[in-house]
């Protein structure tokens, strides 16, 4: 029994360490200030902890983790909104730049990333999820499995989201 728990703990830590960048990116997409991002990160980790016994095979861990992270993020946003907190999509350019500047990438890349995050923040929750998964280079089949919609539906929705994102980036003067 005890070794089972320890096994699960090891599996949990391994999964979290392997997927930490993915989880952090999702936190940034759905929560726009540092405190909220930290809260959301812990919430996602907790959902992974709770759901881990349901993960049958490690080869499905990728899509499984995205589902958990996206569900937790959307619930987090909804909870914040229902408590009367400001929409998490409020832009805080300075804060975002501050978060991104710790990264070892060139200035122009940092700029691109900042504008990309700003544009994504203006999409709705489902579009945010679709764009995130698309940018992570997941196939339509994988996206469909995570979202629970058909592949053709993924195609239509993603096409719209991409169009909207480009328009937003153009309006902001970046492309």
């Amino acid at each position: 029994m005890n070794s089972g728990f320890q096994n699960n703990e090891g599996r949990f830590l391994e999964l979290v360490n392997e997927n930490r960048p993915k989880i952090l990116k999702i936190c940034r997409v759905y929560a726009w200030n540092r405190d909220d991002q930290d809260d959301l990160y812990q919430e996602i980790l907790f959902q992974i902890w709770r759901g881990l016994p349901n993960l049958q095979e490690d080869r499905y861990a990728g899509t499984w983790l995205y589902r958990i992270a996206l569900n937790a993020s959307m619930s987090f946003v909804r909870r914040k909104t229902s408590r009367g907190a400001a929409q998490t999509t409020t832009h805080d350019h300075a804060q975002l730049e501050q978060i991104l500047e710790t990264q070892p990438v060139t200035e122009s890349r940092n700029d691109q990333l900042t504008h990309l995050y700003e544009a994504i923040a203006q999409l709705d929750d489902v579009e945010k999820a679709l764009i995130t998964l698309f940018l992570e280079d997941l196939s339509y089949e994988q996206i469909a499995a995570i979202m629970g919609i058909t592949e053709s539906n993924v195609g239509v929705r993603l096409h719209r989201a991409k169009k909207k994102l480009l328009t937003l980036m153009k309006e902001a003067g970046h492309e």
Binding site: P21, L24, R28, D38, Y41, I99, T102, Q103, V105, R109
Partner: peptide, 8 residues
């Protein structure tokens, strides 16, 4: 994909 997010 090249971003290396820190934090948490």
């Amino acid at each position: 994909q090249e971003q290396k997010p820190s934090g948490g």
